[in-house]
Design a protein around this nucleic acid. Sequence first.
RNA 1: AGAGUGGUUUGUUCUAUCGCUGCGAAGAGAUUCGGAGAGGAAAGUCGGGACAACACAGAGCACCAUACUUCCUAACAGGAAGGGGCAGGGGAGACUCUGUCACAGAUAGCGUCGCAGAAACUAUACCGCCGUGGAAUUUUAUUUCGCGGUAAGGGUGAAAACGUGAGGUAAGAGCUCACGCUAUGAUAUGGCAACAUAUUGUGGGGACAAGCCUUAUGGGUUGAAAUGCCAAAUAAACCGGAGAGUCUGCUUUGCAGGCUAAGGGUUGCUCGUCCGAUUCCGGGGGGUAGGCAGAUAGAGGUGCGAGGUGACUCGCAUCGUAGAUAAAUGAUAGGACACGACAGAAUCCCGCUUAUAGAGCCACAAGGAAA
RNA 2: GGUCCCUUCGUCUAGCGGUUAGGACGUCAGGUUUUCAUCCUGGAAACAGCAGUUCGAUUCUGCUAGGGACUA
Length: 134
Amino acid sequence: MPVKHNLTKAERLHSKTLIDKLFKNGTRKYSYGIIFYNLLTDKTLSSDQKDVSIIVVARKKQFKHAVDRNRIKRLFREAFRNNKHILDNLIPDDKHLMLGMIYVGNGLPEYSFCFKHVENYLTTLATHFKNQKK
RNA sequence: AGAGUGGUUUGUUCUAUCGCUGCGAAGAGAUUCGGAGAGGAAAGUCGGGACAACACAGAGCACCAUACUUCCUAACAGGAAGGGGCAGGGGAGACUCUGUCACAGAUAGCGUCGCAGAAACUAUACCGCCGUGGAAUUUUAUUUCGCGGUAAGGGUGAAAACGUGAGGUAAGAGCUCACGCUAUGAUAUGGCAACAUAUUGUGGGGACAAGCCUUAUGGGUUGAAAUGCCAAAUAAACCGGAGAGUCUGCUUUGCAGGCUAAGGGUUGCUCGUCCGAUUCCGGGGGGUAGGCAGAUAGAGGUGCGAGGUGACUCGCAUCGUAGAUAAAUGAUAGGACACGACAGAAUCCCGCUUAUAGAGCCACAAGGAAA
RNA sequence: GGUCCCUUCGUCUAGCGGUUAGGACGUCAGGUUUUCAUCCUGGAAACAGCAGUUCGAUUCUGCUAGGGACUA
């Protein structure tokens, strides 16, 4: 069975209040120049979103050119798109998972780098949810 | 021959799979199909507009901008052509070529010109030059102390009352004259004009206006986080300041009306003007932070023809060309070549400035190294 | 997106076009002390960059770079 690799608008975080909540209350993890945030909320708060939604951040102070910021966001979105099947059917039905990624590494990342670290993070999250279900 | 510098034009491409944002079609829907999808600078936000909101009887002041002329443009601190200055080159010369210039006014006024120097602005007397009075030395003469004249010579400085020659004088001086330089007025000729040339009159110490300023011209303020509509939500909380006087009517408290006035508007100030008691102004707090419009066909591009020295304008034909809202162009695999620079739309447009690998074209050529 | 402001020793700051660019803290050297601290003396150390105006620019003007503030 082929896995779907879509990334629609509903899977991207765009509400300002939810973003503020994520970066204020979310659990934080740092690895290899990437800061990950995740937060589970009730689905009623974000009715138009799907089960999982993400946001990618590249700081303007660190990356002066808009070209570089766009590139980083695209690479991380691509990495998430190709790895999000790991979390399929693991989120509770009444909950909604928000993910945030801030890239603070030096220089522009390679795609293989992004792919590897996003995959690692998602698998750790997946094992965490599996344990919770049991 | 090549490396280099400056200007200008251009600014990788093909196939497959997965994926993103609008649009169109089909479908009850999930979804499927078709087609479109960053730049010459999208950047800086330096000018100017379009558009929108608010304001606007009027006058004065302040503030800001511009500054050789004519033209182009919707407009501009932009552009074109011309004029002038400066620098450099060529030429025996007449002259010519190239580059560059924020290029109105210093004879409206104020201010500044450090150090050095005698003196730095109604100029100045340190040395020197000349005249003259006194003293010393035995006289010619020299030295010295005063008074007066002088800007030729000296040295200082970025800058010291125009240069050369003659006259003139005690010595000198545009003090006078000739020639020249320069400022300005008048006339004539050429040019739309800036200006140029000629004749003639008057005059002669600067510099700085990217110091204040003067003159002329122009400028209402704020910018898509503007603005309009819908939905949701709420607070007439609290603090500070001002809430005065007088007249009339009703039935005492009080209420209503008029006048002056506090206050407010006139988007900097003053006058003026308008509003002016169910209070006004300021601070501060609470809620919401979603959607639609604005928003992509426009001072549009391309080609041809005509006009103009040119910027540009006119006519005809033709093209359909991003529209997101945490924000769309990416990833993987495989080829081609020069191995891909600067760099990503956020209301739109015109300019300017800055960045830019490689390739094409044009111009420039100093010094060094190698053969 | 828009409107503005600021860059001076290592840090915080003064600076009327002509200055040896001043001060404080820090730093270095010497002295004082048995030694350290304090104290005393002395030194090094800066105008963000590039052009223009001017006899002369940290100061005035333009461009570039960096930093900051405000704005529903």
